[in-house]
Design a protein around this nucleic acid. Structure first.
Length: 832
RNA sequence: GCGAGCGUGGCGAAAUUGGUAGACGCACCAGCCUUAGGAGCUGGCGGGGCAACCUAUCCCGGUUCGAGUCCGGGCGCUCGCACCA
C-alpha cells in the first residue's frame, strides 16, 4: 500500500485506496491453492446446489450482461456458504452449436480449433471476476466426454418412443441454412440472425414434448419461480379448452373436424373455413371451383410466414361444397382461407361471424350471413351486430339458438357440447399451441444424432456402448441449401455397418439442436469427472434438484422448458426420481445503457476487463449489484462505480485503523445488529441494491464525525460484505487476525435484544398532517404520548378545536383528529 | 386483442407492506484541508417561501384518522403470446 502516511495519524481514519489488482490476484491464487471453492461432493452434510446459466463462450469475450448474471448468482451462492451450507457452484460452457459455428464461419476459422481458444479467454475473464466456482466440475458441451452423454439422452428419448422422425412443414432459416424449432422463431424471424424464416417440407427428428403439456403446465402451480417466467411458459404452452365438432360435407360425404372454444355459438356458424393446406380440400372442392381453389392454394403456399401470420385483409375462395350445420341442419358453404392455420387445432374452423372478429371481417368481404346468437346489453335477439363482432358476452344470454336460448355462455358451452356429442358430432378436447420440438439441425457443429439407417432394419439407434458418435474433423463444414448437413458430403464418415444386421448402413448426418446440450447440463455437473455414466445415481440423489437457479428470462420458453421436459422424460425412464430440475428459479433483469440495450451496432457495449482493471473486480461486482434491483436490471453508467469504490476504500481504511482496545460503541453495535438483519434478509431475496445501501449506511455510522471504529464494529461488516467483495473481504479478514477463509467464518448472528428500542420517536400528526415528533419510551401509552405531544407548541398550535379522535400506532405514530377538518388553522399561529 | 409487470427529485433508486416520501449512491453547491486536487473530511441538496408554512409519488375520482401503497376510471411505458379459432 502506498498511502501509509495517512495511518500515522491515528486520530482520524482515512479511506485507504486499496490496491485491488494485487489483492485480487493474491486471493485468487490462494483460493485455487487451498481449494477454498471446492466442496466435498460425496461427504457434504448440507448440500446446496447453486446454478447459474452457463454461457456460450463467444469470441468477443465476457459481456457485462454475463457478469451481471454470474455475480448475482455468485453472491447468492456465497451467502448460502456463509450460512453454513455446503455450496456446489459449478460452471461450464455451452460451446456446441450454431452460435459458435457461425462465429467461426465469420472469422474463417474452424470451430474445432476456435472453440478452445474462446473458452480459454472466457475462463480468464471469469476467474478474474472472482466467482466461487468449483472448477473440477467444469463442462464443455462440445467435448466428446460431454456430448457422448447428450447422445445417450437422445437414445433414452428414442427408447421411450418420444423421439421420432417425420416429414413435416418446418421452419427453415435461409441464412443459417438449417431448420429451427418453433421456439427459435420470433415473429417469423430467426432468433439468431433475424432472417425471415421460410417453410420447408422436410423429414426431421422431433421430440414429443406435446405429450407433456399438462404436466409442464400443472407443475408450474407449485414451482417457486419468477412469475414472469411461469407466465411466459403458460402462454407458450397455450392451453385452451373447447370441443371438436364434426361437420359432414354434403354429396361427397367427407367429415370435417373443427376445433372451437365456442361450441355455444353453433347456431351462428354460417360457414366453414379450411386452411388452404388442409388435406381434404381436393376431395371437397367441386369441379366448377377447382381451378380457383388450386390457384388460391398456390398463392397461400408462396406467402412468407410473417405475412401469413399477421392480420391482413381477408381473402379466400369458395370450394363449391356445403356442409351441414349439425344444430340447425342447414347447409353452410365451405371456404378455404389463409387466416386459418393448418398447425393449430384441426386446421379447420366453423365460422361464427357474429361473435368472432376474424370471421366477421371475412363474412363482410364475401357477403356471408351473420347471425346474432348472443344478446347484447339490450337483451334484444334482433339487434344487428354492428361494426365489430360482438364478443363482450359476460352478462348476456344466448338467442336465436333453439334449445339453448336464455342460457348464459358458459352453461351453453357445456350443454351444446354434450348435446352434439350425444348425436356423435362433438367431443370435448383440449388444444395446445405447444408443438413437438424439432431437434434436427443441418449443421456441422453439434452432436451427431446417434441413428444408423439400414435398408433392412430401418432406423437403428447406435448402441450405447458405441457412443460417442464422434464428430469428425472436416474442412468443408459450411452449411448449404441442400437441406442436409455438411456431414452428408462425407461418405467415409457416414457409411457404417448396421449395428443390427451388419449390412452397410448410413449414419444420420444431421446434428441435434444446441438446446439439447443445455437441457441436461445441470445433471452432468456433479458427475462431470465420471466417464462411466451420464450422471451418477448417488451424486444425483444428493445434489439434485437444483436448489437455486438464477438466469435470464430470454430462456423462459427455450432452455427452461426443454430442461423441464428432458427431466420428466428421464424420470419416466427410471433414471432419476424427480421431475422438476429447478425447484427455485429467479429471473434477473437486463443491463441497459443510456436507456438502450447494449449492442455492438450501437457501440455501447461495456468491456468488463477495463472496468475491473481500473476499479477492481470487487468494486465492479458491487456496482453491478448496486445499480438497480437485481430482478429488474438497470442502467449502466460509469460514474456510479466511484460511490461503491469509495465504500470499499472506507471499509479497508476502517479495517486498517480499527482499534482493539476499549469497548465498541453501544449505538454503533445497535446499528450493526440492524444491519446484519437487513443484509441477511436482502441477500435471501436477491435485493442486493438495498443490502449494499445498508452496509454503506452502517459504515457511515462507524466513521461518523471522523471517529475510529472498533475492531468488533468492523469485523462483522467484513463478513456481510464478503459475498459482494470476496477478495477484499478475505484481505480484511486476514488483516484482522482471523484464520482460514472468511467464507468458512460463518454469518454474523444478530441479537434480537439489540433491535429493541427503549425510546422511540413518535411522529405526531394532526388531521393526518405531520406536525412534529416526540421522543417517548417504547412502551408509552397513548395518553403519555398525547400529553407529550401537547407540550410541543409546534404541535399544540394546530389543535385548535375539540379533539374528536386519537389514533395511536405504538412505536410509530400518533394522529390527533380535530373538528376543523380540512380547514386551515384558524387561530393565530404562535410564533415559536 | 389476451396475459404479466411498471410509472416516485437533475439521474440510478428506497419506503418496515396503509403510518415522517425520497434511505443509499451519482451529479451538483458551500466550507475545511492542501503547493495542488479528478484525493479526503464536514454540511447542504424535490419545488415554492426570509420564515411560519405551503406543495409534491403519471392524470381524475373513491375508501380511510391517514394513500406512493388499497379500489374504480383514464393516459403512458416494458415484456410474453397472438389471424391460436
Amino acid at each position: 500500500m502506498s498511502n501509509d502516511a495517512s495511518t500515522s495519524n491515528s486520530s482520524a481514519p482515512v479511506p485507504v485506496p486499496y490496491e485491488p489488482l494485487a489483492i485480487e490476484k493474491k486471493w485468487q491464487a490462494l483460493w485455487s491453492e487451498r481449494g477454498t471453492n471446492q466442496v466435498d461432493m460425496d461427504g457434504a452434510p448440507d448440500p446446496f446446489y447453486a446454478l447459474m446459466m452457463f454461457p456460450y463462450p463467444s469470441a468477443e469475450g465476457l459481456h457485462v450482461g454475463n457478469l451481471f448474471a454470474f455475480t448475482g448468482s455468485d453472491i447468492s451462492a456465497r451467502y448460502h456458504r456463509l450460512l453454513g451450507k455446503n455450496v456446489f457452484q459449478p460452471f461450464g460452457y455451452d460451446a456446441f452449436g450454431i452460435h459458435s459455428e457461425n462465429y467461426a464461419l465469420k472469422k474463417g476459422a474452424h470451430p474445432m480449433e476456435m472453440t478452445p481458444q474462446n473458452i480459454a479467454n472466457f475462463q480468464r475473464q471469469i476467474e478474474r471476476a472472482g466467482l466461487m466456482i468449483d472448477w473440477r466440475s467444469r463442462v464443455d458441451t462440445s467435448h466428446k466426454d460431454y456430448y457422448r452423454w447428450t447422445q445417450w439422452v437422445f437414445l433414452q428419448l428414442y427408447k421411450q418412443g418420444l423421439a421420432y422422425k417425420k416429414a413435416a412443414a418446418v421452419n427453415w432459416c435461409p441464412n443459417d441454412k438449417t431448420v429451427l424449432a418453433n421456439e427459435q422463431v420470433e415473429n417469423g424471424l430467426c432468433e439468431r440472425c433475424g432472417t425471415p424464416v421460410e417453410q420447408r417440407f422436410l423429414e426431421q427428428w422431433f421430440f414429443r414434448i406435446s405429450a407433456f403439456c399438462d404436466r409442464l403446465l400443472q407443475n408450474l402451480d407449485w414451482l417457486d419461480w419468477s412469475p414472469t417466467t411461469k407466465q411466459a411458459q403458460r402462454n407458450w404452452i397455450g392451453r385452451s379448452e373447447g370441443a371438436e365438432l364434426t361437420f359432414s360435407i354434403q354429396h361427397s360425404g367427407e367429415q370435417v373436424r373443427v376445433f372451437t372454444t365456442r361450441a355455444d355459438t353453433i347456431y351462428g356458424a354460417t360457414y366453414l373455413v379450411l386452411a388452404p393446406e388442409h388435406p381434404l380440400v381436393q376431395a371437397i372442392a367441386t369441379d366448377a371451383q377447382r381451378e380457383d381453389v388450386v390457384a388460391y392454394q398456390e398463392r397461400a403456399q408462396k406467402q412468407d410466414i410473417i405475412t401469413r401470420k399477421s392480420v391482413q385483409d381477408k381473402t379466400g375462395v369458395f370450394t363449391g361444397a356445403y356442409a351441414t350445420n349439425p344444430a340447425t341442419g342447414a347447409p353452410i358453404p365451405v371456404w378455404i382461407a389463409d387466416y386459418v392455420l393448418m398447425e393449430y387445432g384441426t386446421g379447420a374452423i366453423m365460422a361464427v361471424p357474429g361473435h368472432d372478429q376474424r370471421d366477421f371481417e371475412f363474412a363482410n368481404v364475401f357477403a356471408l350471413p351473420i347471425i346474432r346468437v348472443v344478446a347484447g346489453a339490450d337483451d334484444d335477439a334482433n339487434t344487428p351486430i354492428g361494426e365489430h363482432a360482438f364478443t363482450d358476452y359476460d352478462h348476456t344470454r344466448l338467442v336465436n339458438s333453439g334449445r339453448f336460448n336464455g342460457l348464459n355462455v358458459s352453461d351453453a358451452k357445456i350443454q351444446a357440447t354434450d348435446w352434439l356429442a350425444a348425436e356423435g358430432h362433438a367431443k370435448p378436447v383440449v388444444n395446445y399451441r405447444l408443438h413437438d420440438w424439432c431437434i434436427s439441425r443441418q449443421r456441422y457443429w453439434g452432436p451427431p444424432i446417434p441413428i444408423i439407417y439400414c435398408d433392412a432394419c430401418g432406423p437403428v439407434p447406435v448402441p450405447e456402448k458405441d457412443l460417442p458418435v464422434e464428430l469428425p474433423f472436416i474442412q468443408d463444414f459450411k452449411p448449404d441449401d441442400s437441406g442436409v448437413s455438411p456431414l452428408a458430403r462425407h461418405e467415409e464418415w457416414y457409411r457404417v455397418p448396421c449395428p443390427n444386421c451388419g449390412a452397410m448402413g448410413r449414419r444420420e448426418t444431421d446434428v441435434s439442436d444446441t438446446f439439447l446440450d443445455s437441457a441436461w447440463y445441470f445433471l452432468r455437473y456433479p458427475s462431470a469427472q465420471n466417464d462411466q455414466v451420464a450422471f451418477d445415481k448417488t451424486r444425483t440423489a444428493k445434489w439434485l434438484p437444483v436448489d437455486s437457479y438464477i438466469g435470464g428470462n430470454e430462456h423462459a420458453v427455450l432452455h427452461l422448458l426443454y430442461s423441464r421436459f428432458v427431466t420428466m422424460v428421464l424420470k419416466d425412464g427410471g433414471h432419476i426420481d424427480f421431475e422438476e430440475p429447478f425447484t427455485k428459479f429467479r429471473a434477473h433483469g437486463l443491463i441497459i445503457r443510456e436507456g438502450a440495450k447494449m449492442s455492438k451496432s450501437k457501440g455501447n457495449v461495456i468491456n468488463p476487463d477495463e472496468y475491473m482493471e481500473q476499479w477492481g473486480a470487487d468494486a465492479f461486482r458491487m456496482y453491478l449489484m448496486f445499480l438497480g434491483p437485481y430482478e429488474e436490471g438497470g442502467d449502466f453508467r460509469d460514474q456510479g462505480i466511484s460511490g461503491v469504490r469509495r465504500f470499499l476504500d472506507r471499509l479497508w481504511g476502517s479495517v486498517r485503523d480499527a482499534r482493539a482496545d476499549g469497548a465498541p460503541d453501544a449505538d454503533v453495535i445497535r446499528k450493526l445488529h440492524r444491519t446484519i438483519k437487513k443484509v441477511g434478509e436482502d441477500c435471501a431475496s436477491l435485493s442486493y441494491n438495498t443490502a449494499i445501501a445498508a452496509m454503506m449506511e452502517y459504515i457511515n455510522v462507524v466513521r461518523r464525525a471522523e471517529r475510529v471504529g472498533h475492531r468488533d464494529e468492523v469485523l462483522p461488516l467484513v463478513q456481510l460484505a464478503a459475498a459482494f467483495a470476496p477478495h477484499l473481504a478475505e484481505e480484511c479478514w486476514e488483516h484482522l487476525g482471523q484464520t482460514g477463509s472468511v467464507f468458512d467464518g460463518g454469518w454474523p448472528v444478530f441479537d434480537a435484544a439489540q433491535l429493541v428500542d427503549n425510546e422511540v420517536d413518535i411522529t405526531v400528526q394532526v388531521n393526518g398532517k405531520m406536525r412534529g415528533q416526540v421522543r417517548v419510551a417504547a412502551d408509552a401509552t397513548q395518553d403519555t404520548v398525547l400529553a407529550a405531544a401537547m407540550l410541543e407548541t409546534n404541535i399544540a398550535k394546530f389543535v385548535v378545536s375539540d379533539v374528536k379522535k386519537v389514533i395511536y400506532v405504538p412505536k410509530r405514530l400518533l394522529n390527533i383528529v380535530v373538528a376543523h377538518l380540512g380547514s386551515e388553522p384558524d387561530t393565530k399561529i404562535l410564533p415559536s
